[in-house]
């Protein structure tokens, strides 16, 4: 079933919409949530919550692309749940991915004023635009979806080692990019 038809089902308030959405993209949403939470049960709950969120959002929203719209909901809900359950044990892939970014972003100096999140989003988008399509996908698969190197390698058709090297370069590129724009001190 195509996305437009699924959205129509949401507009018709048909519960088949959830089933169709789950059939088509359920695995994407689950793996996204699982990589953040590292807990199968909680990931399933988050996906279910996300479907409810989607149900409430459509209508009036008519998202295009649908999958990205729901992915964002899944990610937000999963991250909120993650915040709540954070313990001393840091073991999810999200943690590992974020640790990589900490090394890239933080410095010994303190930032006087944090850059506005919205501005930062704009900077990130501009940074993403400056990348090749393949690098952009690699970056997002790692830091938006928290994919493992192996998963990314499989998706983009590179070796794991290659993905690792690319990501290291991209982090360096990101750091330079943000530094040049004074988003980092």
């Amino acid at each position: 079933m195509n996305d437009e038809r699924i959205i129509e089902l949401f507009f018709e308030r048909s519960e088949d919409a959830i089933k169709a959405l789950d059939d088509k993209y359920g695995k994407v949403f689950f793996s996204l949530s699982f990589r953040i939470l590292n807990d199968r049960f909680e990931a399933e709950e988050c996906v279910a919550d996300s479907y409810l969120g989607t149900w409430n959002a459509i209508p009036p929203a008519r998202p295009d692309p649908l999958v990205a719209f729901v992915c964002k909901i899944v990610r937000n809900i999963s991250l909120k749940r993650y915040e709540r359950k954070v313990t001393a044990k840091r073991d999810s892939r999200y943690d590992v991915a974020m640790e990589e970014l900490e090394d890239c972003l933080s410095s010994s100096m303190t930032v006087e004023e944090e850059i506005e999140e919205r501005e930062l989003t704009g900077l990130i988008e501009a940074f993403l635009d400056s990348l090749s399509r393949e690098n952009r996908v690699i970056f997002l698969r790692r830091y938006w979806f928290s994919d493992s190197y192996a998963d990314i390698a499989k998706q983009v058709g590179l070796t794991e080692k290659n993905v690792s090297v690319r990501l290291a370069r991209l982090r360096k590129q990101l750091r330079n990019y943000l530094s040049e724009r004074e988003a980092l001190i």
């Binding site: 990205a68 964002k72 990610r75 974020m98 952009r136 979806f145 983009v156």
Partner: peptide, 30 residues
């Protein structure tokens, strides 16, 4: 800036980027 700030900002990027990452299939190598 912390990675969490960055992650939050990253979470707000346009849906087009996310969609591209979801649907991406590698190019056949030349």
């Amino acid at each position: 800036m912390t990675a969490k700030n960055f992650s939050n900002a990253l979470g707000n990027i346009g849906e087009g980027y996310v969609d591209e990452a979801v649907r991406y299939t590698p190019k056949r190598k030349r």
